[in-house]
Amino acid sequence: MTSRSTAQDLDRDDPLAHWRDEFVLPDPDLIYLDGNSLGRTPKRTVEAIRHVIEQEWADDLITSWWENGWLDMPLTVGDTLAPLLGARPGEVAVHDSTTVCLFQLVNVAIDLSGGSVVAVEATEFPTDRYVIEGISRIRPGISVRHGLDDLTGVDVVVRSHVDYRTAAVALLAEETARAAAAGAITVWDLSHAAGVVELDLDGAGVQLAAGCTYKFLNGGPGSPAFTYVRSSIVETVEQPIWGWFGQRDQFAMDNPFDARDGVGRMLNGTPGILGLTGARCGIELSAEAGIGAIATKARALADFGIDLADEFGLECSTARPPVSSGGHISIIHPDATALQERLAERKIIVDKRDPDVLRFGLSPLTTRFVDVFEGVSALAGMLDA
């Protein structure tokens, strides 16, 4: 059987191990395996937000919109994020919730396609399904089709790159091309992929994508999501939520709406500067560590966790990488709710998805191999007791 010393050896040889020191870890005994839902707190975020509050807001006040770059933060943070997505400068904006970003992009895709049929899996993440269903209520003639196997007659496809239950990875380039061959535009949800999977949106031919920053990018609770619009189509995009930050000259108050150039046209209301500050810090940290190294460790953590599940006789629904992302492994048990609570009593935090899924999050910058060993072995011990 794999032992704790095996995990310790893997941690000793881990080239990313020192990045854990970049995070606030107030309880050394806590085993946190839920970074795929909410990433840990970077130390630099605490300092950066303190500076924004005490200096830029308290002292510089309104001048911070110009003097401290607040006006352009959704776009400058977007340019920092772009390389982690395989995107170009000027193609990413960090600005609102994932729900709002998806609402904008699905509407954009419908308009670009000139069609009326939107396809989504019945098991897709709830927000994605809710957004589509909501749009079908307010746009006459829009219909929703469940299932992606047959795209005949489909105009827009909405799907996650990484499945939130199993961590299975959809083939980005192949599936984008398959939809395009059927005459459909794909809107990709990258929420469970950004910051843990090596992405090449440009090379994959992706046109539209959105995702959150509070999971593997460690942006903080409710940190703003991002929108990606391919540069070759951005000037043809007309998004549905008009606000003064999306206006070409936002201080020409009496002018009719005129969308600004580039991905900035996706902006709407005044951005939350504290949330953007947290997002920027988490994104910068991941960029410094390197998405290649992060993705490599994620796959290794997943393989290790699956090995343990196999050895302990646990039912794991996550396939090995590269079929899965490495961002988490899912263990199936009918008493998942009670088991999650018992693990929490032992200071082992995992996620749960009804009715029977325990998700062990594997956030590479903060998760150690020994954490995975302790979490999986503790679960196995509870089942054997």
Rank of each mutant, 00 (worst) to 15 (best):
N107T: 13
V108S: 09
V131H: 03
D150K: 03
V92L: 12
V157I: 08
L148H: 00
P140R: 13
V154Y: 05
H95F: 14
C101M: 14
E91C: 08
Y164H: 05
A167I: 15
R165Q: 11
V100Q: 12
A109D: 04
V94Q: 03
P89K: 14
I110K: 11
L102T: 06
I142Y: 03
A119R: 04
G115F: 02
L172D: 00
G153Q: 04
I138R: 13
R165S: 02
A167F: 14
D163E: 10
A93E: 15
V154Q: 03
D155Y: 07
L172V: 02
I135P: 04
P140M: 07
E91V: 08
P126K: 04
S160C: 07
A184S: 11
L172F: 00
D96N: 15
C101D: 08
R145T: 03
T127S: 11
G147T: 09
G147D: 08
P89D: 14
R139W: 02
R165F: 07
G115L: 04
L84F: 08
R178F: 10
R159E: 04
A170R: 13
D150S: 03
P126R: 04
R88F: 11
C101H: 08
G134A: 01
V117R: 08
Y164I: 03
L151H: 10
P89G: 14
I142S: 09
T123K: 04
I110Q: 12
T98C: 13
V100A: 11
D96W: 14
F125R: 09
S116C: 14
S136A: 11
A87P: 01
V158W: 09
E133R: 09
S97F: 13
D155G: 07
R159M: 06
E121S: 07
V120A: 02
G141T: 13
E174W: 00
T127F: 05
T98N: 10
P89M: 12
V158M: 15
T127M: 08
D149E: 15
I135L: 15
I138C: 10
L85S: 10
A122L: 01
A93L: 15
C101G: 12
S143L: 06
D111Q: 14
D128G: 05
A179F: 01
R145P: 00
P140K: 13
I138H: 07
A177V: 07
A109R: 03
G134V: 00
C101E: 13
A122R: 06
H95G: 15
T176F: 00
D155N: 15
A179M: 01
V118F: 03
L102E: 06
F103R: 12
E91N: 14
L85R: 06
G90R: 04
L148R: 00
G134R: 04
I110L: 15
T123L: 01
G153C: 05
H95P: 09
A179L: 00
T99D: 12
D149G: 15
P140L: 11
D111A: 15
L148A: 00
D149R: 12
H95Y: 14
G183E: 06
S113P: 13
I110P: 12
V117G: 02
G114T: 12
V157M: 06
V106C: 13
E124S: 09
V118S: 03
A184Q: 09
L105F: 06
I142K: 09
V158I: 10
G115R: 05
R178N: 12
P126L: 08
A122F: 01
I185T: 13
G153F: 05
L112D: 10
R159P: 00
P140T: 07
L171N: 09
